[in-house]
Computed example of a mutant assay.
Amino acid sequence: MKYALLALLASAAPALAHPVTVQSCNREVTFDAPPARAISNDVNLTEMMLVLGLRDRMVGYTGISGWKTLDEEMRAGVAELPELSAKYPTKEVLAGAEPDFFFAGWNYGMKVGGEVTPETLEPLGIKTYELTESCIHIGPKARSSMDDMYNDILNLGTIFGVSAKAEELVAGWKARLAEVTAGVDRSKPLRVFVYDSGEETPFTAGAYAMPTAMIEAAGGINIMDDLEKSWATVAWEPVVERNPEVIVIVNYGDVTAEQKIAFLEANPAFANIDAVKNDRYVVLEYVEATPGPRNIRAVEKLVAGFWGN
């Protein structure tokens, strides 16, 4: 009887820690109990849920197949979950699944002034946690750093009562990051441009996007780190003027990384860019370039591409 009682108490331990309060962008959100019917939007946010072992607390996910970002690794992870919407979900789609939690971000499933926001979902009994990187869309925040991703994992750990798992993951990632970047020479950082998409004008990462932090961790500098945005469209002229030594290609969607590289190499306007002249490209998958568990793997790729390690 005593052992049965102890087992029961142990299984209830996560719930006993509640209520908990976490900071989500400019809001404090309190959870009286761990969510039991969660929905995540986008591949990177969904992977955060999966790596914390929360698949059994989820009723589905949104916003993955519409952007063609699902790889074999993720396909196995979400095999038992329904995709409720191929792109951004409507309020009706979310309400129909009867969730109690939505993990999304600004321009990661929610739009400023749109129909799906923390305020519009609250009356439906759906609490929202916002991706830290995306908070710049609704107010000031610090520049991008690896802590943005760590913060989300730790907050999810608190929300779902799996803080020990979250802390273990973050400690492991920090140790691996230190190991990967230990030999990086930071005295003369490489000039790096992030090419996400677009031919007339490129869509790229600014000061508040995760690639800027990963590039800096790998010993480079994002040539657009003075762009006071996360992801945004710029003109090609400043890219040519700032002459990147390496171009990071984000691979997803209908246009492949190979096609993006071919476009850069076929355009005479880019012929004098060092990265193009020297054929120096690093390809990151979408799930590596956005905040999530694969960011450390992405830094490893960058270190290898920058320094030949």
Score class of each variant (00 low, 15 high):
Thr132Gly: 01
Asp152Cys: 02
Gly219Arg: 02
His18Tyr: 08
Thr120Gln: 02
Tyr3Lys: 11
Ala304Glu: 12
Ser24Asp: 07
Glu28Trp: 08
Glu245Tyr: 00
Ala275Lys: 06
Glu28Asp: 13
Leu284Ser: 01
Leu50Ser: 10
Ser40His: 02
Ala178Leu: 07
Ser65Leu: 10
Thr132Arg: 11
Lys260Ala: 03
Thr21Arg: 06
Ile153Cys: 04
Leu54Thr: 01
Arg186Leu: 11
Gly161Pro: 00
Pro118Ser: 08
Glu285Pro: 00
Trp231Met: 04
Gly157Glu: 03
Phe263Pro: 01
Cys135Asn: 07
Gly105Glu: 02
Glu73Met: 08
Tyr252Arg: 14
Glu122Cys: 03
Arg37Pro: 03
Asn44Trp: 11
Val93Asp: 08
Lys260Gly: 08
Asp225Lys: 11
Val250Cys: 09
Leu227Asp: 03
Asp100Ser: 06
Thr290Phe: 13
Met74Trp: 11
Gln23Ser: 11
Trp173Lys: 12
Arg297Leu: 05
Thr132Tyr: 05
Leu177Trp: 06
Arg191Gly: 13
Val192Tyr: 02
Gly77Asn: 05
Thr120Pro: 04
Phe270Pro: 01
Phe263Gln: 11
Phe306Arg: 00
Lys141Phe: 03
Ile249Lys: 03
Ile223Cys: 07
Tyr286Asn: 15
Glu199Asn: 14
Glu216Cys: 01
Gly220Gln: 04
Leu81Asn: 11
Pro189Ala: 01
Asp100Met: 04
Val162Ile: 09
Phe101Asn: 00
Ala15Lys: 11
Pro244Cys: 08
Thr290Lys: 06
Gly77Arg: 04
Ala36Arg: 15
Leu84Thr: 10
Asn251Glu: 15
Gly96Trp: 09
Pro238Phe: 08
Leu52Met: 09
Ile126Tyr: 02
Pro82Lys: 13
Thr30Cys: 12
Tyr281Glu: 09
Leu190Ile: 13
Leu84Ala: 04
Asn44Tyr: 12
Met48Ser: 13
Tyr195Trp: 02
Arg280Ile: 09
Ala36Lys: 15
Ala275Asp: 03
Thr128Pro: 07
Leu124Glu: 04
Ser65Arg: 15
Pro99Gly: 10
Pro89Asn: 10
Tyr88Ala: 12
Phe203Ile: 10
Thr290Ser: 13
Val282Ala: 02
Val192Pro: 04
Gly172Trp: 07
Glu265Pro: 00
Ile136Asp: 02
Glu28Ala: 14
Glu237Gly: 00
Ser163Asp: 12
Ala271Gln: 09
Ala33Glu: 13
Ala218Gln: 04
Thr120Asn: 05
Ala207Phe: 05
